[in-house]
Design a protein around this nucleic acid. Structure first.
Length: 840
RNA sequence: GCGGGCGUGGCGGAAUGGUAGACGCCGGGGACUUAAAAUCCCCUGAGCUUUGCUCGUGCGGGUUCGAGUCCCGCCGCCCGUACCA
């Protein structure tokens, strides 16, 4: 070995080519080995790989390489979530075709990923905008249609009257179109929906089986699905009509003092001929949209002339139109029980309505006044006729039973989850494979005619959906009757594309979306890694899609992802100055400043800039570091190592130049140690042998628990110990072990060192080092000697020493005796192999 | 508001109720060098009357022989969010 420095600019490419040529990471479905499917959320091809991608894929890569070393046949694929609005935006801004723009981005990002040396099976790569892929998606969509899980209904969209286009919610800013600035209108369109609500109960119950998902994500999904049970019943109204309300607290029905309906409730609409009512309804609709704003918004109500007759007491309750009642949930109307619901309490206080107590902590406290807020908690029912003395739970059942017997209401489960609207009035997406015929109605495109491909000759220089105004594309003959008909011009939500891509990675026949037997070999995904931002929608849709396919008999697995890991963001401090003229901060990029230990100076003028908080890398704050530049400078292994070091993977990782330089130094340090490998060295170093085997075991369990930062620390420790050790067979073995431990994390360095020390084949194919259980335990341990729980001394003792021996050792300590100072010993606590605590 | 998470040196962070601060970064000192880079060695929570002692894991209590860890009550920050009847 001649080079004293590891040169990543040569080695990285050499090994990346070697892996590619050998097909090292090509997954073999027919392998007899146990299978392991490692998947990271596939990227949107925005143009450049960013540090967040690097972190995400490095974690998956370490797992994939480690699992391979542990004898698994590993599937670790990569592809592109390639449909979506940014491509259309680029088309409008730069006059390029969305497809060309996307393909170019993919080529660029793929090259970037390859320079990082990820152990990916590129033979399975695809983009969701490939007609082969979306054609199969259309076939699956038709299958779901046949299974009754697809339907059409009218639904409201945001319409930009200037751009003549439908806007996504995020494109509506302060009620105006983001591009045109025009006031956004609401329009009703016939749209396609997926019946995710059919699976609400399944999706909820399935969460219990996902033990290796973060509790937080499971809870978010549970809340999103939002199951509640209660009573739906009708009030008789003074105008002769009926008002259906839903309540989760029928036990408090005797405390009802008013009813409230949503502004767009039919009864409210019917009263809107009164200008005062119309004005109030308008006011409600203008209200804030976000939860944070709504929470501080004042409760507003309009008292209608109508009253509702209480089903038990016969009392006439006033009916209000109120801004806090939502038409979308339940029946769009509620009974107001001010004593036991905070919103009702605030409303009743404002409008001077009675606040009655019907739940108390104790029957004796039935008349206790409220302390300025509602009491929503548990208790005993009071002031409630036949319910008095019951628990909340019993009273609920009693009221529901009475309602059902009396025929004026029934117990009902209500879900927050709504059906999934998948129609998008856009070009760059999967065409929905249906044809509209004046005679036959909505007709599915026959499967043999799939894929329905997007036309290439489209332009984005005039507003509207290019598919809608294309001269020929939508004009087709009806597959049923043969008469002239029109293609559906809506495309599918891109969340559909990402709801089954993991199945296509596992199996990709040409004639079908996937082969069930091949899929069964790999699914479920063993480790799914990605950002927390997908905790609800993507993960819920993928779970739904998988269940829907299982429901239609296409696959056996119900849950697609056995274990989920949500990684933290890559962050960086910001550099800014206040622009005196405008009073707003101006940000500078890391490359524009000189960061010293005290502060930061702007290179342009040498004057200081403000060093701000460490926050997520974003273009607007200019705190972005480009992975390519770092890899060119320090090599792939240093970047990979940085991504794994220090911060626990679920937390944010602050990027720093000092940090990456430290990693690059460690790469060289390991290289020097590896270069000192002497296959012919003799002699035993028992202590080092122990350290080596303990480290192998610890790194393995750390990687399995995704505790990469801890695995990194272990490798540092063994490196230090090996460097200090004198040459011996043990030391050479330690070096060989270190090469293996480093292999999943710094694969290029490991391959280079492995070859240089005469190793056979690729280390990527090598097995994980065996451990000798006998070497995992130390024969000597350090015992802490405490007096009253305070450390006074430490001594070494043979492992497994008896309590008596340890106690004697402790009492022999001069430090301990000085602390005890002759006091009578009341108690001695001995924790074997750990400590002795003397209590006086 | 609600739900979840977090709070440990200058910084990122370790620590099955059992020696707080592993490991890394920053910083300081030294060696090598004509010099620099690189590398190596040592020091690095605070304080003190320095064989050692006291204090120290957001704040205040509690349980325990022993609490960063468990319990109760606060404070602060972060993430998510749906006024869901």
């Amino acid at each position: 070995m001649t080079d004293t420095r590891f040169d990543p600019s040569v080695a990285d490419g050499r090994w990346q080519r070697a892996w590619a040529e050998a097909g090292t990471f090509t997954a073999d479905s027919d392998s007899a080995k146990p299978k392991s499917y490692i998947l990271e959320m596939f990227p949107y091809p925005s143009g450049r790989i960013h540090m967040g991608h690097v972190r995400n894929y490095t974690m998956g890569d370490v797992l994939a390489r480690y699992q391979k070393m542990r004898g698994f046949e590993v599937l670790h694929p990569m592809g592109w979530d390639a449909f979506g609005m940014p491509a259309e935006n680029a088309a409008m801004e730069k006059g390029v075709h969305p497809g060309g723009w996307t393909r170019q981005n993919i080529a660029q990002m793929k090259a970037q990923l390859q320079r990082i040396g990820f152990a990916l099976d590129w033979t399975r790569e695809f983009a969701t905008c490939d007609p082969e892929y979306y054609g199969h998606e259309q076939a699956l969509f038709l299958d779901l249609y046949e299974a009754g899980l697809v339907y059409r209904k009218e639904s409201t969209v945001n319409w930009d009257p200037v751009d003549m286009t439908v806007l996504a919610n995020e494109q509506v800013i302060d009620g105006k179109g983001w591009r045109s600035g025009a006031e956004v209108e609401k329009r009703k369109l016939n749209q396609w929906f997926l019946k995710i609500t059919d699976f609400a109960d399944d999706l909820l119950e399935g969460l219990d089986s996902l033990e290796d998902w973060p509790e937080k994500v499971r809870l978010m999904q549970e809340n999103w699905i939002g199951k509640s049970s209660g009573l739906e019943f009708s009030f008789d109204l003074s105008d002769g009509g009926k008002l259906a309300v839903y309540s989760t607290r029928p036990d408090t029905i005797f405390g009802a003092s008013f009813c409230a309906i949503a502004a767009d409730h039919p009864i409210a609409q019917a009263l809107a001929s009164d200008p005062e009512v119309a004005a109030f309804i308008d006011q409600c609709k203008k209200g804030a949209a976000t939860a944070a704003a709504l929470e501080t918004a004042e409760k507003l109500g309009y008292r209608t002339p109508i009253t509702a007759k209480h089903p038990f007491t016969g009392a006439a309750l006033p009916v209000f139109i109120a801004n806090f009642v939502l038409m979308e949930y339940g029946t769009g109307a509620v009974m107001g029980v001010p004593g036991h619901d905070q919103r009702d309490f605030e409303f009743a206080t404002k409008y001077g309505l009675p606040i009655a107590r019907v739940v108390a902590s104790d029957p004796a406290k039935a008349d206790e006044p409220f302390k300025g807020e509602a009491e929503a908690g548990d208790g005993i029912i009071v002031n409630s006729d036949f319910l008095n003395g019951m628990s909340v739970e019993d009273a609920k059942h009693a009221v529901i039973t009475r309602a059902e017997e009396g025929g004026w209401g029934e117990g009902r489960t209500v879900w927050r989850l709504r059906d999934w609207g998948v129609s998008r009035q856009r070009y760059w997406g999967t065409p929905i494979p249906f044809i509209h015929c004046d005679t036959c109605g909505v007709v599915p495109v026959p499967k043999e005619q799939l894929p329905v491909t997007l036309p290439e000759d489209v332009s984005f220089d005039i507003p509207g959906n290019p598919l809608e105004r294309h001269p020929t594309w939508k004009h087709v003959d009806c597959p049923k009757c043969g008469k002239a008909a029109r293609r559906e011009t809506d495309t599918l939500d891109t969340f559909v594309d990402s709801s089954w891509y993991f199945l296509r990675f596992a199996s990709q026949p040409a004639d079908r979306p996937f082969d069930p037997e091949e899929v069964a070999k790999w699914m479920p995904v063993q480790h799914y890694i990605g950002g927390i931002e997908h905790a609800i929608l993507h993960l819920l849709y993928a779970r739904f899609w998988t269940r829907a396919l299982a429901h239609t008999g296409k696959i056996a697995v119900q849950e697609p992802f056995a274990a989920l890991f949500t990684q933290g963001m890559v962050t960086h401090e910001t550099y800014s100055r206040i622009d005196e003229a405008r009073g707003v901060p101006v940000f500078f990029g890391p490359e524009e400043v000189d960061r010293t230990s005290e502060g930061a100076l702007l290179l342009a003028d040498g004057a200081p800039v403000e060093v701000g908080r460490v926050i997520k890398m974003s273009k607007s704050k200019k705190n972005v570091v480009d992975p390519d530049a770092i890899i060119a400078r320090h090599g792939a292994d240093a970047v990979r190592w940085f991504m794994l070091s220090d911060s626990p993977p679920e937390r944010d990782l602050p990027w720093s130049d000092a940090g990456i330089e430290g990693c690059a130094r460690f790469v060289q340090r390991l290289w020097r140690l590896f270069s000192a490998h002497d296959a012919g060295a003799t002699g035993e170093d028992k202590a080092l042998d122990r350290k080596t085997h303990q480290t192998i075991a610890a790194v393995a369990s750390d990687i399995e628990a995704l505790g990469f930062n801890k695995a990194v620390a272990r490798i540092y420790e063994l490196t230090g110990a090996t460097e200090k050790a004198a040459p011996s067979a043990s030391r050479s073995a330690a070096i060989r072990a270190l090469v293996h431990l480093a292999a999943p994390m710094m694969p290029h360095l490991a391959e280079e060192a492995w070859t240089n020390m005469g190793g056979t084949g690729l280390i990527a194919d090598a097995p994980w080092p065996e451990i000798d259980p006998a070497l995992l335990v130390d024969d000597e341990v350090t015992i802490a000697i405490q007096h009253m729980g305070k450390l006074r001394d430490t001594v070494t003792a043979p492992k497994g020493s008896s309590k008596e021996d340890l106690e004697a050792l402790a009492l022999a300590s001069a430090n301990l005796q000085r602390s005890v100072d002759g006091a009578a010993i009341r108690k001695v606590i001995v924790v074997p192999d750990r400590l002795v605590n003397i209590v006086t």
